[in-house]
Simulated assay, not measured.
Amino acid sequence: MEQLEQLFPYFALIITALIVGAVAFLFFKKHTENEENRRRYLLHKDAQGKLLPLRLQAFERITLFLERMDLNKSVVRIKPRNSNVEVYENDLINGIEQEYEHNLTQQIYVSAEAWNIIRTAKNATIQTVRQMAMNEKNDSADKLRESLLNNAMAGVSPSQKALAFIKTEISELF
């Protein structure tokens, strides 16, 4: 019994030391987690500051692509070389495809949804050109051109819809 009474102060010291150690461990663990989160935040903030101008530049390039791809502008910009409908159809489609390929790298700066909408707009525009070229009324490149212009003026083009989405995505950046 006497030995137990002599060991009691040592047990009290050990228990106190364990409690202090546990509190210190939890404090330092929480402190290091907060520091890590702060460093991540600062890195993210720094990256955003550098990335925002690049993203805005990509949106500018995409806007230019969508404007150039719009049939109203494509038909005016790409003139028929001769009266052959197939040649003019291929010229229009090649012009759109070249613009698209020139801007492929911009997809890393926009959301996957935005890029899918841009790609869909390109494909829909090409499909419109092909459908109009298959119309028997369009037996010359000039008639195809006129039909494409009339069709483009009749409604909202796929590139205009994509441009509206892009404007929405840009507004979310700010």
Rank of each mutant, 00 (worst) to 15 (best):
L43N: 13
L43K: 07
D46R: 13
A47H: 02
G49H: 10
K50E: 08
L51T: 05
L52M: 12
R55M: 14
Q57H: 07
Q57K: 10
F59L: 12
I62K: 06
F65N: 02
F65I: 01
L66I: 07
L66Q: 02
E67I: 10
R68G: 11
N72E: 00
V75M: 07
R77A: 10
I78W: 01
I78R: 05
I78F: 14
K79H: 12
R81G: 12
N84W: 02
E86I: 00
V87Y: 06
V87R: 04
N90R: 06
I93V: 15
N94F: 03
N94E: 09
I96H: 04
I96K: 03
I96E: 07
I96R: 01
E97H: 04
Q98C: 03
E99T: 13
Y100W: 12
Y100H: 11
E101K: 15
N103K: 07
N103G: 02
N103R: 07
N103S: 12
L104M: 15
T105M: 11
T105N: 11
Q106V: 01
Q106I: 04
Q107G: 11
Q107S: 15
I108R: 15
E113Y: 12
A114N: 09
W115A: 01
A121F: 07
N123G: 05
T125L: 10
I126A: 06
Q127L: 11
Q127S: 14
R130F: 04
M132A: 03
M132Y: 06
N135H: 02
N135T: 06
N135M: 03
N138V: 03
D139R: 12
S140A: 04
A141Q: 01
L144H: 00
R145H: 08
L149G: 01
A154R: 04
S157E: 14
Q160G: 01
A162F: 05
L163T: 05
A164R: 12
K167G: 06
K167V: 02
K167Y: 03
K167W: 01
E169R: 06
L173S: 06
